[in-house]
Design a protein around this nucleic acid. Structure first.
Lengths: 196, 196
DNA sequence: CGTCTATTTGAATGTACTCAAAAGCGGTGG
DNA sequence: CCACCGCTTTTGAGTACATTCAAATAGACG
């Protein structure tokens, strides 16, 4: 294991404390509900039609989350990485089949929590529920931005946005993966890059 | 005023209780933090570059929320109506200038809450905070769906989706408004309708 | 009734897609 | 260490969906 327990507990605690105050006791209670999971490059965290049983905090690693539309096409929603959460929220909450695929682009280390554990924590810790309220709000805001960027539908400007927002991801992803995020074909993406 | 107080209090309480349990006392505490607002057709609830000071529950009415992109183009995000919430969440939470415009398509009646009142309520009522956690989750899920639908970017299928999802809105909106929701020009929308 | 906005129609244009095929690159096994 | 396989990237031709611009027509509202 690349890090020892206390290191990533610290990292996770910092993550929580960026949003809510948590004392030692509360953190103990919280961390006990999480389990650690390793996942290797190219493995799936979630396959289409599976139910998403965990929300996962990413200690380390990079994922690609794609959504599958009615015609079976895949569209990349985002590339969750260190210090983010990954999962299909809809599937998790409704306990229904997911239309998403979550895939490890790099070896990863996760802290996972099940729905029942999460709901128990909500009942005993308002701070924890507040944390997830704020996370959900952040997610909604990010998606709203994403939607707006998608409307101004010029692939080039979308690429610039992406590069500005995630400069570090450029070297960690293939052109094909970025094209899928932008919603264009790899062929067109290639031409676009050449033109510049 | 088109309805008396108790009628819309009832409606609002039902709305809350679809998600969390609220006893009489708690509801009293909550409803006190809201104020009623009437808004007429064609008036703005929020103009671009304003800060969104309230989250509003829609007792009655229909709105159009549009986002303005960097090139100044307007894109319709959705058409909030009875029993939904309306506002620019990002602007509300960050107290920053909004890039949205919210516009009353029909005369409307709202229950509004300010940020400070909302945060006070969160502190005294975990049920209320839970309600907004779940609302934020719902919003995120809806936006994710919206994004997916937008990717499968064939205007005709988007129109079918829209009609399926909001059959009742068809008669309440102009073609131009629906075109803006779909992300196509009114001219193209017109041709599309003709073809069918 | 007049004005303003929405809708229709058409022609020219552009952005991105499909399909096909070639070239490049990386990892794996012999 | 090299050769091969599979996947990614490039290139090109043809096409489709949607846009822009302009102008005509229809509708809504005061």
């Amino acid at each position: 294991m690349p890090q020892n327990t206390s290191t990533y507990h610290q990292q996770f605690r910092k993550h929580l404390e960026r949003v809510v105050l948590i004392d030692d006791e509360a953190f103990e209670e919280i961390i006990q509900c999480f389990s650690i999971k390793e996942i290797s490059k190219k493995d799936y965290l979630l396959r289409p039609f599976q139910v998403c049983r965990y929300e996962s905090y990413i200690i380390k690693g990079l994922f690609q989350t794609t959504m599958i539309d009615d015609e079976g096409r895949q569209h990349t929603l985002h590339f969750p990485h260190e210090d983010w959460w990954v999962g299909d929220f809809k599937s998790f909450r409704k306990e229904q089949e997911s239309n998403m695929e979550i895939f490890a682009v790099e070896d990863a280390l996760l802290l996972q929590i099940s729905k029942s554990a999460m709901y128990q924590l909500f009942d005993i810790s308002p701070a924890f529920e507040r944390f997830f309220r704020i996370m959900a709000e952040n997610a909604a805001m990010a998606l709203q931005d994403r939607l707006l960027k998608n409307y101004s539908h010029n692939a080039e400007s979308k690429l610039l946005e992406f590069q500005k927002k995630y400069p570090s991801l450029k070297n960690r992803l293939s052109q094909k993966q970025i094209a899928s995020y932008l919603g264009v074909t790899p062929e067109y993406f290639s031409q676009m890059v050449k033109k510049k």
